[in-house]
Amino acid sequence: MEPLRLHLNELPWPPPKEVLDAARKGLEKLNRYSDEKKLQELMFKLGDYTGIASERIILSPGSDILLREAVHLFTQQRKVVTLCPSFLPTVTSARQTTNQLTRLRLSLPDFRLNMDLLKSELEGPCLLILDNPNNPTGKIVISPDEVKTLLEKEDVLLIVDEAYYEFSGITCANLVEKYPNLLVTRTMDKVFSLAGARIGFGLAGDVFLKKLSDFFIYLPQIALYACLAALDKKELMKERVNFIIEERKRLVEKLLTEGVEVYDTSANFILINSPIPEVVEELKKEGILITDLSHQMPQGFIRITIGKAEENNQFFNKFQKLRNRFGLTKKYDE
């Protein structure tokens, strides 16, 4: 039996029929590089979806690839400031290219970013990378107004990774028109059920736009056709997002009632701090995949993607069974 995938923050449903049909059309063109007109069409559609001029859109085979490219292009002679924890591939990229990397710890209980501390780190030429909501804490770490104050600082370039924007509803995308030093990255992977298609995009201020548009990007045909069709199904996407948000709240509530240390987020996952030893392995044995965060958070933290209602229930029941086995529901008898 296939394991239950609650570890990669994917959406649990496959794309709708129209998107799958479009992907098949792309399949028939596999002997050709993607058509320039189709790529233009995707940029227009994304412009329409984001409310940003299509000329500012940078396409990429995955937003992580775009982030990596931006980091490689803009870290020369710059200090890189980012968060801990954060989306690890970006941090790894930065480590490869800069000799000055500072990570600011987001601490318990609320994983708040200390803005004064952040500003004090932005001295001299800097590249600041913030994932908002942060992955894996799922917290909104900065407001659009706060982003503005950072963009006003001298010689600061800012990348805001908004991979989970549709769940949080908070964005600073409209600032790219005014601020040349801002890049916002997004993805089609999550809310459009297209993780397997791997399409990301950037909304770029002038400084980023100039360098990132130096290369012409061909996207995979299947992914390109699927994305174009998916952008015609925005209502379905919104329904799915709302369902996941409601399910997230329901699961958090249930876990809280059981006395679990659980953290709600602004994304399609939740965090749990569990004292169960090897909890990730234990759940894997039960056919449930979740993410171990012990390499960048205190021991015991795990991330669970929100799935369909029955999948979330399945996780809850298996997790409770484990908690019972470890005597975690026992109360002190006065």
């Binding site: 801990c84 480590r95 800069t98 000799n99 000055q100 990397l101 500072t102 990570r103 600011l104 710890r105 601490s107 200390n114 501390l117 780190e121």
Partner: peptide, 16 residues
């Protein structure tokens, strides 16, 4: 207050 911990070549983590 806050302190920097060196964790790599030129790499620091700032913690309370």
């Amino acid at each position: 207050g806050y302190a920097k911990v060196v964790v790599g070549y030129g790499e620091t983590v700032v913690l309370e």
